[in-house]
Simulated scan of single mutants.
Amino acid sequence: MMICRIWHGRTSRERADRYAVFLEQRAIPDYRSVPGNIDVAVLRREEGDVTHFLTMTHWVSEKAIRDFAGDDILKAKYYPEDADFLLEFEPEVQHFEVVARQIPS
């Protein structure tokens, strides 16, 4: 069973470009360093003065997620630098069981 873990965060539009760089340079390597992480995608959407980010990660098991996030696997994981960017800290992420997926050959 593959698990998709989705985190949502909001930042001001003026800080969004810098936050995108931070996610690429700090968060993605952190996810990828954990055995059992399959992949990472960061999505971005502008909405007025606010920019939304969704981080979607795929994992081989809950154990792999636990190795990344700790024992409470639904608790959102934040970095100290997030305080410089985020408008609030959502306490939880969402998990979905992946029931269908196609990877280009």
Rank of each mutant, 00 (worst) to 15 (best):
2 M>G: 08
3 I>E: 04
9 G>P: 00
9 G>H: 05
10 R>A: 11
10 R>F: 11
11 T>D: 03
11 T>L: 02
11 T>Q: 03
13 R>E: 12
13 R>Q: 13
13 R>F: 11
14 E>P: 10
14 E>V: 13
15 R>V: 07
15 R>E: 08
15 R>W: 08
18 R>E: 13
19 Y>V: 00
19 Y>C: 02
20 A>Y: 07
21 V>E: 13
22 F>W: 10
23 L>I: 07
23 L>N: 06
23 L>P: 04
24 E>I: 10
24 E>D: 14
24 E>M: 11
25 Q>F: 06
26 R>V: 14
26 R>P: 09
26 R>H: 13
27 A>S: 12
28 I>D: 09
29 P>C: 12
31 Y>R: 07
32 R>C: 15
32 R>Y: 15
33 S>V: 10
33 S>H: 10
35 P>Y: 10
35 P>D: 10
36 G>N: 06
36 G>D: 05
37 N>K: 09
39 D>A: 15
41 A>K: 15
42 V>T: 08
43 L>E: 08
47 E>F: 11
49 D>M: 15
50 V>Q: 08
51 T>C: 07
51 T>G: 01
51 T>S: 06
52 H>R: 09
52 H>I: 04
52 H>A: 10
53 F>P: 00
53 F>D: 01
54 L>R: 12
54 L>C: 12
54 L>S: 13
55 T>A: 07
57 T>R: 02
57 T>P: 06
59 W>I: 00
61 S>R: 01
61 S>A: 04
61 S>V: 06
63 K>Q: 11
63 K>P: 03
63 K>L: 08
63 K>C: 05
65 I>N: 02
65 I>M: 01
65 I>E: 02
65 I>S: 05
66 R>N: 01
66 R>E: 03
68 F>A: 04
69 A>G: 01
69 A>R: 00
69 A>D: 06
69 A>V: 02
70 G>Q: 00
71 D>H: 11
72 D>C: 02
72 D>T: 02
73 I>H: 02
73 I>G: 05
74 L>C: 13
75 K>H: 04
76 A>D: 00
76 A>E: 05
77 K>P: 00
78 Y>V: 00
79 Y>C: 06
82 D>G: 06
83 A>E: 14
84 D>E: 15
85 F>P: 02
87 L>P: 11
87 L>H: 13
89 F>T: 06
89 F>H: 08
89 F>M: 08
90 E>P: 12
90 E>L: 14
91 P>C: 07
91 P>N: 08
91 P>E: 10
93 V>H: 04
93 V>M: 04
95 H>Y: 03
97 E>V: 13
97 E>F: 13
98 V>I: 10
99 V>A: 11
100 A>E: 15
101 R>G: 11
101 R>S: 14
102 Q>L: 15
105 S>D: 15
